[in-house]
Structures are given as structure tokens and as C-alpha cells.
Amino acid sequence: MTSEQQNSKALIRERSKKRRSLYKSVDKAMQFVFRFCGLLAALMIILIVFFVTVRGIQVFLPSYDDPVSLREFLTGMRWRTDQGIYGVFFIVINTLVTAFFAGLIAFPLSTLSALMIVKIAPKRLSNILTTVVELLAAIPSVVYGVFASGVITAIVKRIANLFNYTTFGGNSMLAAILLLAIMIYPTITSMAVVAIRAVPESHELGSLALGASRTQTNFKVVLSSAKSGIFAGLILGLGRAFGEATAVSMVAGNAFTGPTLNPFNLVRTLTTTMLQGLHETVGTDYDIRFSVGIVLMLVILFNNLAINALRRKIESGD
């Protein structure tokens, strides 16, 4: 080896040493950035929960100016701000019932639509339908709200007349349910589409090769392989149903008492209770909205746990 070659080798070694140390410090910096991002996400959740909880709990504490009884709050069947009566129990029931029925309507429709989009429709139609679902998901909730108060309520009013019921201009639980069903339909559908697309083709071929028809294959193999993702869509959809405030408050009617199982009665949901008149009020009526917020978060948490338990039960087989 000539001395020239040796020199150049040493040079390369020197350079790569420098580069290595540069990479090392870049690695370290990036690691710090990633950690910070992760921490930020966790911090935001902690901050929100902490803030809402602290504000929400204070109305029940004896130190509060005009304390509300926690027991009456949790079991109460009336919400009369004007009389200082705050009972959240019927609102929880109303919220659960509306979301449940909205899910009951939207879930099968969404699943079948997704199956149609992925497996049945010809490619062009499937592309069009996918765009439609995406558009539906992108419509702001306040637009859904005006649509509901202008169109859905009118329909509900007619239906009510048909059964000899009266409604308050169509504002009712049924209107809220229909509105929510329409709103969560694109959410569940797009998740189901992703889940069904992810089912390996080999499962389908295996099923068809066993003499199963297309329909049998779609229902027995495709849907059952995709159920995990479809349930994730249901969780997201119901989350939206529980959490939707703006549009629902435009048709729910904010009943004072409840719970009601008559679809033509006015209802009050947790979100509308938090939203309505937020900026025109102070004192207990303002602070107690944070307590309702805690209840809402708990409802969503339990809902998610319940759906996950249901999914595990279905997945483990009958």
C-alpha cells in the first residue's frame, strides 16, 4: 500500500468519524422531539380532564356559594335552571337512548354500504360512492343542524300526526335520532370500508372454492374477518353521537324533565345541556356544565369499554 493510499484511508476514517458523531447528535435531537410530541398529547388529555374535573367538582363542595347535592345531581329527573334544580340522571338516559337508536339505524346501513362499496359495486360506482361518503363526513355539524331543523322536523311532524301525536314543531327525540343516524353513517361507513378492504383476498377465494356463494362469502367470511375494524367504526360513530352538540341542540328541544321513551317527546342530551345558553349565564348554571362534562366523558368511556367487551365476546366465537 502506498503512503498516498494510506493517507486517503485515514482521511476517510476521520470523516466517517465526524459524520458518525453528527448522526449521533441528530438522533439525540430527534429523540427529544419525539418524546416532546408524545408528552404533549398526554399532557393535553391530562390538562383537559383535570381542568373539567376541578371545575365540575367544585359545585358539589361545601365551600361553593350555593352548593348542589351530588346525590340529587346524579339521580335527579328534572333540570330547571330557573329553580336551581339540576338532575342529570334523565339526561344520561336520554343521551344513551338517542345514541343507541342512532347507532342501531346507522350501523347495519353503514356495514352494508361498505360491503357494497368494496365488494359489490363496479369500480366507477364504488369510486363515486366513496367520494359521497367522504363528502358526507366533511359536512359541518351546524349544516346538518339546519337541515335537520328544516327538513327532518317537518317529516317527524307528519309522522307524529299520522299516529295522532303532537310534537313541538317536530323537535323531538325521533328527530335527534334520525339526525344522529345520518351524521354517524359516514363515520362508520368509512371505517368499515377500510376494514373490509384489508380482508385478504385469499379468504374470499378459499370460501368461493368451497362452493360458497358470493353472498355467503361476503357475510360469513368478509364481514367476520373485518369485524374488528367495523367495531372500531362503531366506537367512533357512537362517540360522535354522544358528543354532537350543535346539530342536536337545534332539534332536541331541551326538555325540562324526563327520561322519555316516547319518540315524539322533547329530549335533553348531555351535550345540549352543556351548550345551550352557555354565554348568557353565570354562577351555578355555568359551573355545573363542567359537571355534566365529567358525566359525558364517563358515559363515552363506559360505552367504549362495553363495545370492546362485546367485540371480544363475538371474536372468541359462540
Binding site: H203, L210, G211, A212, S224
Partner: peptide
């Protein structure tokens, strides 16, 4: 009908994501 008379086994094993029993019973159930 033809596919119940002419069965097929694929290159990649492709059991359905269900129990062993349900896999074997699948064809008959269909």
C-alpha cells in the same frame, strides 16, 4: 355446485379467522 365437487387447496394456507371446527364445517354450512 361444481366447486363442491372439485375442491381446492391454495399455495398459502388460508384458514378463515374462525375456530378450527367452524373452518371445517364452513362448506357444509354453506
Amino acid at each position: 355446485q361444481l366447486r363442491t365437487v372439485v375442491g381446492m387447496v391454495f399455495q398459502q394456507p388460508n384458514p378463515f379467522p374462525m375456530s378450527v371446527y367452524d373452518n371445517v364445517a364452513y362448506g357444509l354450512r354453506c
